[in-house]
Each structure stands twice: as C-alpha cells, then as structure tokens.
Design a protein around this nucleic acid. Sequence first.
DNA 1: AAGTCGGGGAC
DNA 2: GTCCCAGACTT
Length: 362
Amino acid sequence: MDWQSDANAVKATFAPTLEGWYERHRRDLPWRHTRDPYRIWLSEVILQQTRVAQGKPYYERFVESYPTVTDLANADERELLRLWQGLGYYSRARNLHQTARYITDQLGAEFPATFAGLLTLKGIGVYTAAAVASFAFGERVPVVDGNVYRVLARVFGITEDITTTGAKKTFAKLAEQLIQHAEDPATYNQSIMEFGAIQCTPVSPDCLLCPLQQSCNAYQTGRQMRLPVKAKKAPVRDRYFNYLVFRQGDRLAMRERTDRDIWQNLHDFWLIETDEPVDALTDLVLPEEVVGLVSQGRVTGGAVPLTQLLSHQRIRGQFFLIDMPDGLPVALPAGFNWHSADEVNRLPKPVLITTYLNEGLG
DNA sequence: AAGTCGGGGAC
DNA sequence: GTCCCAGACTT
C-alpha cells in the first residue's frame, strides 16, 4: 500500500473511530441535552477560550436567568455583565446581548439556520458558526478549535505552525475532508473536541489507550509532545536606555548606531543601558570616557522619561541633559560629533529621540 | 499578520 | 513562572 492510499485509509476511518470513542467516553454536559440554537450558541460563546469546568456554572446561571433569546435581548446590560463577571473577555457578553437583540428584533427571534447565516452575527466567528450549525441544525461543517488543531496535527503529522494563515487553511481543508466520512456531523464534531480535551491532551496524552494509536503519525514517530507546532509569541522585553544629552549652545553630541541591535544607522546620544530603571544621574555608573565631560558640564533639569514600544521590546528612555560651558572646544569620545540644531534635524533618528527633541528638550 | 482581550487550572 | 483553554475582533 503506497503512502497516498494509506493516508486516505486513515482519513476514512478517522471520523467513525472518534464517533465510537465518543459514545464510550462522553461527559454529561448540560448543553448536550438540547438542540435549541439559542442554548447552544450561549454555551459556545461562554466556552470560547474557556475551559468546560470554568464555563459550566456560568451557562447554568445564564439559562436560568435568560431561558430564551428574547429574555436575553430584554436583559439589563449591567445585570448581564454582572452574571458574566469573572469569565473574562467581556466583549463576548456585550456581543451576546447585541446579537440577542438583533435576532429578537430583526429576525423574529429565529436563529439563522446555516453556517453562512450564523457567521454574519456579531461575536460569531468560523468556529462558533460551525458549532451551532452542526449541533443545532445538523449541517455537515467541521469545527476547528484548539482541540482539533492538536488532534489533527498529531494524527496526520502536520508540522506547520498553527498560528499562520497557511496552516489554518491546511487544517480547515483536512477537517472538511474528514467530516465527509462522519455518520453524524454533530456527533463527530463533539467527538473530536471531546477527544482532544480528554484523551489527546496537550501534555501527556493517553496514547497507550488510544484508538488511533496505530494510525497516528505522531505516536508512530514519537512526536506527540512536539505537535502541534505553535510559534511562541516573542515576549516583550524591557530595556532601560539612559541617555546623556551633552549640549553646547545649540549643538548636541550625537553618534550613529552601528551595533548589531535596534536602530542601526540612526543617530542617538550617549547611552548607558541598564537592566533596571534608574531614577537619577547619580545612580548611573559612568564610563571613564564621559566622567570628565559630566563633571565639566552642568546637569539641566531632571530626568525626562519617555517610552517607545517596539514589536518585541519596550524601550524605557530616560534623558539627562548636560550643558557644557560655552567658548572653549569640548572633545567628545570616539564616534561622537557635535551637531548644530539644523544638522540634528536632518539626521535620521529613532522616534524616541525625535520625541525627546520635540517635547522633552527644554 | 499582529495585537488585544482575561481569568483560571495544570504543571 | 509557562502554557493553554469549544476564538473573535481590530488595526
């Protein structure tokens, strides 16, 4: 059997296997006792980026307080938000209310009965539209949530980074193929998410008792823990840039940045970078090259703090202005030059420096 | 494509 | 501490 037909064989048995697994392992959850699109929609919105255990009591309280979409539409906004309190992502609650009013007022309290129709509603994206369309109306459209990414990446050995647009298309296309083999779309969608939540978990999946063990690419290649691939978003690093701004008349001491770092070829001042914030000039350890300059000069004003946010760094700038005596020439460290105000204007500079020149410089 | 929105549980 | 959760929306 060649690779192509082998992969197709796995695809064909995937949905029935999960549907069988689901029958034996499904949890008894309140939203699984209804096909009311309102209650299913409510549960899906509550469960967006939220664990079942956390969302369940909220769902029960909402159903109790607002049994129908019209009840929700007529709800007091503040009372609704109070019920939502502690769930996070509060725009979900506001969109919920807005959409309930829209359905009640504009659609005669009837939910759109198709994936495409549901997708037009505020707060309903691709996942939730698929969930409601399949669970409430039986439409054969696949849900693709965090569980599905994980299960599919492992079983089919997909190594694409799931945070990219290309990967999302890959998974959506595969999910679309897989659901064609399902006996019941709603049950299949429930089963793959339940499977991801209970069996094919992010850490220490239960591969030894897994019905897909034989056909799972990740298990067969020992890569369960490596899949799915998900790019870590680079943490925002704090950097403290303490600038000594030497001024003589209208001239400023600047240099071109040439290090392998941000702002290459742009011009800035004498920089002392620290790992921690510094309040005063006296807290800075001055390098030998500038000790003499600082002692000759006069510190003007206090520290000027300015922050610039970059993609992966937060630059906390702190500017200390030091006026040098007029008349006699002042020698600068290597790489630095005196620049007149006009020259400074024309030099390419980081936004942080320009902001300081415009707003912070006395 | 990247940023923003949250609280909580598992490790 | 990190990661992730039945994602959607804005820029």
